[in-house]
Design a protein around this nucleic acid. Structure first.
Lengths: 213, 213
DNA sequence: AAATTTTTTAATCATTTGATTAATTATTTT
DNA sequence: AAAATAATTAATCAAATGATTAAAAAATTT
């Protein structure tokens, strides 16, 4: 019961001592988990990366799993919710939403290239735990974007296929980067340029798809 | 040194006693590794799944890692080399190759939906070990497919982008299936139908892309 | 400043996990 | 059939790993 007391205090203090140990552990955990996944990450790796005593990990977060869940939920929100703003914007055209979605996502993924593979891998390892929990149901349906998309192609045009395509074209290159780099004999730099140019290309490709009857 | 002798005998016998223990272990290992990844898979899980004594795993394959490498190389060839046949075919048109590539891949992935995420995750965990080893350099360049693609759009048309798109549109839905199913409020069955219909749609979409100047 | 609480540390625990061993059973060779 | 080899098993090992504890140090409250 000692722990509960401490945990309570910690969360109260969270705003105050926001940096320091607790945050150091979270940052190190985020890095290690995202890099190697839950199963392959050792709590000792995290402790070393954070430069803290191993016991502090359990002191602040109770268990490896609790710490992981925390990181994971943050990451998922980062990954899934990032789009919601763009897709809900009532002031932009469909075309502009394509451009913003792809642009924002590629920018974000360029900074966090490990994120999608990590998330998808952990979701597969524990679908019920993570997918259900984050409210992603109404990220698509009901948004301004979805209405615009249906207005453009009709429900018969299978709007969800288009959405899958937009995500596939944007995210997959990051998920498969080591393979694609090798397949295309590309240096990391060349590959990044290729990715960067997709910011403009993907919206064009999506548009071309929409013209099909 | 006892093991080396045995290992030699085993490989000689391989053709004869092809099924039985050794193969049972490989099948179980393939299943468990593909399902949970290297780090999360316990040798005891494999032994139980195969219905054999744990020691036999080491007896036949020396170590968890050696067994994994074996499975992994087989999987990668399954995954990467599958396309080579289609892309090298000198008798088909570019359009037909799109259709065959997408069709074959979707069929294969429907039967082994865990394969791509597994492979991509393990490649990322150990890029040098697996990517370099499998000769995927000339799976694209130099094939009949590549020549046809350049003939159709020119080198300025960025053929590699098109190839990335073809792979993205085909493979990503499998990699992200739990997320996409939830995002689209789809039953597994509905999702499979969506995937199935992509066999015809993806070639159309690719074609639409090719028309862009 | 004393008392109290919180944070940090080193040492240690209990399991898990990959691997080995020595003995037993089954198979093959002679 | 006897001898030799291969396959299988139960028991065990050593290292790794997540977690805890008791004591010390630091910070906060009184």
């Amino acid at each position: 019961m000692v722990k509960l007391k401490k945990a309570a205090k910690v969360s109260v203090k969270a705003t105050k001592s926001d940096h320091s140990t607790e945050e150091k552990i979270k940052m190190a955990a985020r890095k290690m988990f995202t890099q190697k996944g839950f199963a392959a990450t050792r709590t000792r790796d995290i402790a070393e990366e954070a430069g803290i005593n191993l016991a502090l990990l359990n002191y602040y977060f109770r268990s490896k799993e609790k710490l992981f869940d925390l990181i994971m939920l943050e990451n998922m929100q980062h990954f899934v919710m990032g789009m919601k703003g763009v897709l809900s914007d009532e002031t932009t055209t469909l075309q502009e939403k394509f451009e913003q979605f792809v642009g924002n996502y590629i920018d974000m993924l360029t900074q966090h290239p490990d994120l999608p593979l990590f998330i998808l891998h952990e979701i597969k390892a524990n679908p019920d735990k993570f997918v259900e929990r984050v409210g992603i149901q109404n990220v698509i349906f009901g948004t301004h974007f979805y209405k615009q998309l249906i207005a453009a192609i009709g429900k018969k045009g299978q709007p969800f296929q288009i959405i899958m395509n937009m995500m596939s074209l944007t995210v997959f290159p990051f998920v498969a980067s080591p393979l694609l780099r090798n397949l295309g004999n590309l240096t990391p730099d060349d590959f990044n340029k290729l990715i960067e140019s997709r910011k403009k290309l993907i919206p064009l490709w999506i548009n071309a798809m929409l013209t099909i009857k």
